[in-house]
């Protein structure tokens, strides 16, 4: 098992003929992901190193049975690509694109509620179920199959902590980058719910940062619904209030959204919080050794 993607994933890449789209599609395929199609309007009939390109997602789904979509479309068209993926009936859409207008995402996430499509991102690294499938830009070589589930608001911190886990012999079931935007698809709660139900996952690493209240809601969910141990990390203890720190959603507003408040919320429900990425891996190591 794993969550969201596995051996049954059949991937269509929207924006496959772009620079990043092509580079990462081929890396995902080299990892072993079953990349069945690409979409670029107007380039239907071409192929990218043998991967057939279609004009629409609907056509790609009909012809190849794609069930997951990866979006590398420029920001001003990206929300449209999310609608298109949903309308074509893919179960999971993963949007890597950074810089999509917040209002576009407010409308898109609302639209998805009436469909069977789950969104990851935008402004995210995608996700990987090591040994099974890699959908997005997470470097596959730093991961290993195992029993730690990981959910993160930061791409770089995902890599950092996955790297630390793998180096200590702790593999991962699925690593999900939920992205750094204030309005996004799957969050901590939705991922925790899936990890709790996934027999492969024995512990969860949760990587948060300043801004918003996703971490506080995650802490409540852990308290009420999780039997598996969770170790958390919160970036931004030294972040000044009122400044946007790298991600659109990473901002301390007034007295809320601070790293200290988030760490406290976790500790109050028995979730251990690492002071740095290395300590998160060490805490997980001790948790799993018990």
């Amino acid at each position: 098992m794993a969550i969201l993607i596995d051996d049954h994933t059949r991937l269509v890449v929207q924006g496959i003929t772009g620079r990043e789209g092509q580079f990462h599609t081929l890396r995902n395929r080299a990892y072993g992901t079953n990349v069945v199609a690409g979409v670029t309007p107007g380039k239907g009939g071409q192929d990218v190193e043998g991967i057939p390109v279609f004009d629409t997602v609907a056509e790609a789904v009909e012809r190849t049975g794609a069930n997951t979509s990866l979006i590398f479309v420029p920001a001003r068209f990206a929300a449209g690509s999310v609608y298109e993926a949903a309308d074509a009936g893919v179960g999971l859409a993963v949007c890597i694109t950074e810089g999509i207008p917040v209002l576009d995402m407010v409308k898109a996430t609302r639209y998805l509620k009436g469909t069977g499509t789950v969104l990851i991102g935008p402004n995210c690294p995608g996700l990987i179920s090591p040994g099974k499938a890699n959908v997005g830009i997470i470097p596959g070589e730093i991961c290993a199959p195992g029993n730690v589930g990981l959910i993160s608001r930061s791409g770089t911190l995902t890599y950092q902590i996955v790297g630390e886990l793998t180096a200590r012999g702790m593999g991962q079931s699925t690593c999900v980058g939920m992205g750094g935007d204030p309005v996004h698809g799957i969050g901590f709660v939705e991922a925790l719910e899936r990890f709790e139900a996934d027999p492969q996952t024995e512990a969860v690493a949760l990587i948060g940062e300043i801004g918003g209240s996703d971490e506080e809601r995650a802490a409540e969910f852990v308290r009420d619904h999780l039997s598996k141990p969770v170790v958390a990390y919160v970036a931004g203890f030294s972040a000044p209030p009122g400044k946007r720190m790298g991600h659109a959603g990473a901002i301390i507003t007034g007295s809320s959204g601070t790293a200290a408040a988030k760490a406290e919320a976790f500790e109050a429900v028995g979730v251990k919080v690492g002071r740095n990425p290395t300590e998160v891996a060490e805490l997980l190591g001790r948790t799993l050794a018990r």
């Binding site: 940062e209 203890f237 972040a239």
Partner: peptide, 15 residues
């Protein structure tokens, strides 16, 4: 941002 935190933990002050 995590980089700022580890610099602070190492006794530095990010400029």
């Amino acid at each position: 941002m995590s980089t700022l935190d580890v610099v602070s933990q190492a006794g530095g002050k990010p400029a």
